[in-house]
Simulated scan of single mutants.
Amino acid sequence: MPTVEMTRHLYRFFPVLENRAIRVPAGSVADILRGVDALAPGFSDYVLDERGALRPHVNLCLNDTIVIDRKTLSDYVPEEATLYIFQALSGG
Rank of each mutant, 00 (worst) to 15 (best):
D69E: 15
A53C: 06
H57N: 15
K71F: 13
T65P: 09
D37W: 02
D69A: 08
F43H: 05
L33F: 01
T72I: 04
C61R: 14
D64I: 06
D31M: 00
D49M: 01
V47S: 00
A40N: 06
V67P: 11
R51P: 00
G52V: 03
I32H: 01
P41H: 01
R55I: 11
E50M: 04
L60E: 11
L73D: 07
L33W: 01
N59A: 15
D45Q: 13
P41R: 04
C61G: 09
L73W: 07
D69F: 07
D49H: 02
R55K: 13
T72F: 08
L39P: 02
R34T: 09
I32C: 05
D45N: 12
V67G: 13
R34Y: 00
L33S: 05
G35L: 02
G35Q: 02
S74Y: 10
N63E: 15
V47M: 02
A38N: 08
L62K: 09
G35F: 00
Y46I: 03
L33C: 02
P56N: 12
I68C: 13
L62C: 11
C61N: 14
R34C: 00
N63D: 15
R34W: 03
I68D: 15
Y46E: 09
L48M: 08
D31C: 00
V67H: 11
D64P: 04
L62I: 11
R55H: 07
H57D: 15
V58H: 13
L60Y: 07
G52D: 09
E50Y: 03
G52C: 02
L62D: 14
P41N: 06
F43A: 03
I68K: 14
P41S: 04
V58K: 07
P41M: 01
G42L: 07
L62T: 11
